[in-house]
Amino acid sequence: MADSSPNTFGGAAGLASVNLAKGFVTIVVSTLALIVLCVIFAPSAVTAGSLVGSLPFASVLAIVGLGQMLVVQQGGFDLSVPGSVSLAVVIATHMPNGNDAMLLQSVLVAIGFALVAGVLNGIMVAYFRLNAIVATIGMNALLYAAVFAISGGVPRITTKLLAGIAGGKTLGIPHSVYFALGLLAIVSFVLKKTVAGRRFEAIGANPKAARAAGLVVKPYQAMAYVFAQLLYCTAGILIAGITREPTAFQGNSLLLPSVAVVVLAGTSLLGGRGFPISVVIAAFFLNQLSQFALSIGVPYSAQTIVQALALVFGIGVYSIDWTTRFKTATQSSTEEENP
């Protein structure tokens, strides 16, 4: 079809951006449009003060979104987000109980729990071929059992140290933003620049082709859940620092947005390529959308409807891609029938 000579491969660098195009452009354009709307209709939503107030939540969402992205890339779905975020929150607040010296230990314990949950999820989904929804729904219940075992459902106050680390500011920018950007850099680097990350994406894009090419598929699929849990855990600890008295159900409100940002960033729910930068921008977009809705007088209770619509919109935008997928699938099956 493309009939240019093979010599044109030299000019490939300029074409590298083509792949980013759809998801990246869509989300950047939407975000810019939203900011313009804010400036015109709800200037209070884009003042420095309100941004400093809302950015930490966007950062937390971005981190959770990165985790969900890894799972979605493998064609999975992680419904254990609420449980694992909430568990990290209660461990980080209950274990130290205001004592700064206990903070490091509590963080290590939280990471330990996250590893166990992630490994179990991964084994159940990749090796025992359990449906990802059922496995993670069950895991979510177990994580909440741990939440209640530790906290009894009662909130405790964050330690000062954690509040300083997670909730503080440097150069006028909340620390959580640095955390989000740091994790973004790590995830992007590993996914795009290392052997393991590139294999991870290839396996997500087509596990059958990966297997036919002689790759081992299962460990990669399982690792998606482990790293996702670590990211949720980080998000939970940050929440514990940002919110003065976090509840035991802090993670509940993050499940849908975590899926929404992945979808808005252009990763197909059927698996494949991940777009970490777009996920982070989408998290900012979604957060800003809530701010905008609040400023123009949409009641707080209707916030989730706005999010649901954003998700539907996101899927709608990319459903064109899905159609071609669907067509390719039917086509090949027709070819099979009509050799």
């Binding site: 994406e201 290839a202 082709a209 197909s268 494949g272 390529r273 997928r325 390719t328 090949s332």
Partner: peptide, 11 residues
């Protein structure tokens, strides 16, 4: 079957 086993269309 190139489409299902040979290539990852996304990449």
């Amino acid at each position: 079957d190139r489409h299902t086993e040979g290539l990852a269309a996304d990449l």
